[in-house]
Simulated scan of single mutants.
Amino acid sequence: MSGSPGVPDQKIYIVDDDEALRDSLVWLLESNGYAVASYESAASFLEIYDASLTGCLVLDVRMPGMSGLELFEELKRRRSPLPVIFITGHGDVPMAVSAVKKGAVDFIEKPFGDRDMLALIEQCLAAERENRIKRRLETEVARRLAHLTHREREVLDLIIGGKLNKQIADVLGISIKTVEVHRARVMEKMGANSLAELVQQVIAAEPGASH
Rank of each mutant, 00 (worst) to 15 (best):
S31W: 11
S31R: 15
S31E: 06
S31C: 11
N32I: 06
G33I: 05
Y34W: 04
A35N: 07
A37Q: 05
S38Y: 10
S38F: 04
S38E: 13
E40K: 15
S41Q: 06
S41C: 04
S41T: 13
A42C: 11
A42L: 09
A42T: 10
A43P: 00
A43K: 12
A43G: 10
S44E: 15
F45P: 02
F45N: 10
F45T: 05
F45D: 05
L46Q: 05
E47P: 06
Y49T: 00
A51Q: 10
A51H: 03
A51C: 07
S52Y: 08
S52M: 08
S52P: 00
L53K: 09
T54S: 09
T54M: 11
G55I: 04
G55K: 00
G55S: 00
G55W: 03
L57G: 05
V58R: 03
L59I: 07
L59R: 00
D60Y: 02
V61R: 02
R62P: 00
R62Y: 11
R62N: 14
R62C: 09
R62D: 11
R62M: 12
R62T: 09
M63Y: 12
M63D: 14
P64Q: 14
P64Y: 02
G65Y: 03
G65M: 13
G65P: 05
G65H: 08
M66C: 04
M66G: 07
S67I: 12
S67Y: 09
S67R: 14
S67D: 14
S67L: 10
G68S: 11
L69D: 12
L69P: 01
L69C: 03
L69F: 08
E70S: 11
L71M: 13
L71G: 03
F72G: 05
E73A: 15
E73S: 04
E74T: 08
E74G: 02
E74C: 12
E74S: 09
L75F: 04
K76F: 08
R77A: 13
R77G: 09
R78F: 04
R78N: 11
R79G: 09
R79L: 12
R79A: 14
R79N: 12
S80Q: 01
P81Y: 08
L82C: 00
L82A: 03
P83I: 03
V84L: 03
V84I: 15
V84H: 02
I85R: 04
I85L: 06
I85P: 00
F86P: 02
F86Q: 03
F86T: 06
T88S: 15
T88E: 02
G89H: 07
G89N: 09
G89C: 10
G89A: 08
H90G: 10
H90T: 05
G91M: 07
D92M: 02
P94T: 14
M95I: 15
M95P: 05
A96H: 07
